[in-house]
């Protein structure tokens, strides 16, 4: 699992930074990847099947939910890796943290988008959010 998320977050080598090795060595890719998947799944279920509201099914609403999910996962990831690196007494540049956090933000939003496309069809009020894919 760590390999899978490492490949994903590093974009198969394109998105390598100073902290990439440490993230891999301390299994942080799988921790953060797991956090991302579980959070996206939970928010997806809450948005599409619990709130499931005709008042909250516009593109704009979905974008807000997606952005908030991404920001939440990115911040929690930042806290996790900062705590770990501080504990291990590893010092990295602030820019490396930011690059990784933005990567997490992007992949969280992308994951939520994929979940939305795959699972929206059974929602009564949000089956056409964010885009109508039915013929």
């Amino acid at each position: 699992m760590n390999d899978f998320f490492a490949n994903l977050f590093e974009l198969w080598g394109i998105n390598m930074t100073e902290i990439s090795d440490s993230l891999y060595d301390y299994n942080l890719y799988s921790t953060i990847g797991g956090l991302m998947m579980v959070t996206c799944l939970m928010v997806f279920i809450i948005y599409y099947y619990i709130i499931n509201s005709p008042d909250f099914n516009k593109k704009g609403h979905w974008l807000i939910v997606t952005a908030l999910t991404g920001i939440f996962v990115a911040i929690v990831s930042l806290i996790i890796l900062n705590k770990k690196f501080t504990f291990e007494e590893l010092g990295y540049l602030f820019g490396d943290y930011i690059q990784f956090t933005l990567t997490v933000l992007f992949f969280t939003m992308a994951t939520f988008f994929v979940f939305s496309l795959l699972g929206k069809h059974w929602s009564t009020n949000c089956k056409d959010t964010p885009i109508r894919t039915r013929r």
Binding site: P54, N57, K58, T124, N125, C126, R132
Partner: peptide, 8 residues
């Protein structure tokens, strides 16, 4: 309202 599924 295009956001409402019934309007498809």
């Amino acid at each position: 309202p295009s956001n409402q599924p019934w309007t498809k």
